[in-house]
Design a binder for these strands. Structure first.
Length: 108
DNA sequence: CGGTTGACTGTTT
DNA sequence: TAAACAGCCAACC
């Protein structure tokens, strides 16, 4: 089997993000592994950073391994936080998400 | 071909 | 608990 090209990797990543259930979160590394891309957490971040602003994809359900919203170049992460809060995802006073309650655990 | 970048992560201070 | 460090690797230049 040939190594997936750039577009295919991107498509796999987007498909995984799209499958994260409402009210749950996944880490960048988790998305990469689910997409069959091993240690490409950073690639996941790169792909998400290029999404159009109006996308219907639930990109806000992807957080870092510390359970926090990763800082990014442009705007503030408050939008992501609001979207998660609206889905019932709670944050600790330290601004972290409790994986014990909200981490997505895909079956099989 | 070589160096830099980065919505990352696990380990060590 | 938090910051620093080191490892990571595709994408870009």
């Amino acid at each position: 089997m040939t190594r997936p090209d750039r577009d295919e990797r991107r498509q796999r990543i987007l498909a995984v993000v799209d499958s994260i259930p409402h009210g749950r979160v996944a880490t960048y590394g988790q998305v990469a592994r689910e997409a069959g891309l091993g240690r490409h957490a950073r690639l996941v971040g790169k792909v998400l950073s290029e999404l159009p602003a109006r996308t219907a994809l639930p990109w806000h359900r992807v957080v870092n391994a510390a359970g926090a919203i990763s800082p990014r170049a442009g705007d503030s992460p408050s939008l992501q936080r609001r979207r998660l809060a609206r889905e019932g995802v709670r944050f600790t006073t330290a601004g972290r998400i409790e994986f014990a309650r909200f981490l997505w655990r895909p079956e099989t």
